[in-house]
């Protein structure tokens, strides 16, 4: 599997245009294109609707049939801010960034060890990492809760940092491994022949080559950490809660007001949607533990 996910050369499309025998069949591809657009927009529509509703007044949000035309307002976002989303955003940001940094600090050397300079039993270690993703989190939550409670770390943001690091580490190790494997072996050989020590060849040759991979891995970790809810809702309360927890609390305190909820949901989802759009070419590689590029 060496083929990258980049777009295929346009050869098929072009040759079709030139083939006279196919001329009668033009409607087929056009129809498929229209269908694809409809599917795409249809699938995206709930999100579009969420964003639109976030800019409505409550009165515009509760109409039947739903209204498409309205005067946009920032009122709902102001309400969300004034109801104190700030600390939650900061908590989410802190847990996400710190856990991602720790994941990289642990995963990059580990991935290097299992790819460029493999030792015996490497395969076993790699599958151990995957297997930790297979065990249901819920089976661990009870002892984690008890331990965290006993050491007084309940409702502490560092608890989430540690757990998110563990949660993302297997994915990051596998993903970084697949990037390290793309580094030609000769590059390291050339560096060692040119007189570079292990550390220097790592810093000067390997890291610059895998840096796009590190960026993609970080983005994937950011997405998962930001979206995490299970640990957050069970282990945090007032001080360390993250944005998804805020969202749940927001319903309870504000009731089911569509426009406000949509504004809150939009703010909650926006950062990772953007991160995901940026990382979309590497998304598959990360989610499949590097098995698919």
């Amino acid at each position: 599997m060496a083929a990258p996910t980049t777009e295929r050369p346009a050869s098929t499309g072009d040759t079709r245009e030139l083939a006279p025998a196919r001329r009668g069949n033009r409607a087929g591809p056009a129809l498929l294109t229209v269908l694809t657009w409809i599917v795409g927009i249809g699938f995206f529509f709930p999100i579009l609707w969420m964003v639109l509703t976030a800019f409505k007044k409550e009165a515009d949000a509760y109409t039947s049939p739903p209204s498409l035309f309205f005067t946009p307002t920032l009122e709902q976002f102001e309400t969300v801010f004034s109801s104190g989303i700030g600390p939650y955003l900061l908590n989410s940001l802190f847990a996400t960034v710190m856990s991602t940094v720790f994941v990289l600090l642990l995963a990059v050397p580990a991935a290097y060890a299992v790819s460029l300079r493999p030792v015996k039993k490497t395969q076993d270690v790699l599958f151990f990492f995957i297997s930790t993703k297979m065990l249901p989190v819920v089976a661990a939550i009870v002892p984690i809760y008890v331990v965290v409670n006993n050491i007084g770390m309940l409702d502490n943001i560092w608890t989430l940092v540690v757990l998110y690091t563990a949660m993302n580490l297997p994915i990051a190790v596998w993903m970084m491994r697949s990037f390290f494997q793309e580094v030609p072996k000769e590059l390291l050989e050339a560096a060692s022949m040119d007189g570079a020590s292990l550390w220097r060849s790592m810093r000067e040759v390997v890291l610059p080559v895998v840096s796009p991979g590190i960026a993609a891995t970080s983005l994937i970790c950011v997405i998962f950490a930001w979206n995490e809810f299970f640990f957050a809702v069970n282990l945090t309360a007032a001080t360390a809660a993250t944005v998804p927890v805020f969202l749940v609390g927001f319903i309870t305190s504000e009731g089911l007001y569509f426009a406000k909820l949509c504004a809150a949901a939009t703010m909650c989802a926006l950062p990772v949607v953007v991160a995901g759009w940026i990382a979309q070419n590497k998304l598959v590689q990360g989610l499949s533990f590097g098995a698919v590029k």
């Binding site: 000769e186 050989e189 050339a190 560096a191 060692s192 022949m193 040119d194 570079a196 040759v205 080559v209």
Partner: peptide, 15 residues
């Protein structure tokens, strides 16, 4: 790195 040799690789191995 201590042999004082230089090598040209098949795929060049340029950084």
């Amino acid at each position: 790195r201590d042999r004082d040799i230089a090598m040209v690789f098949q795929n060049y191995a340029l950084y």
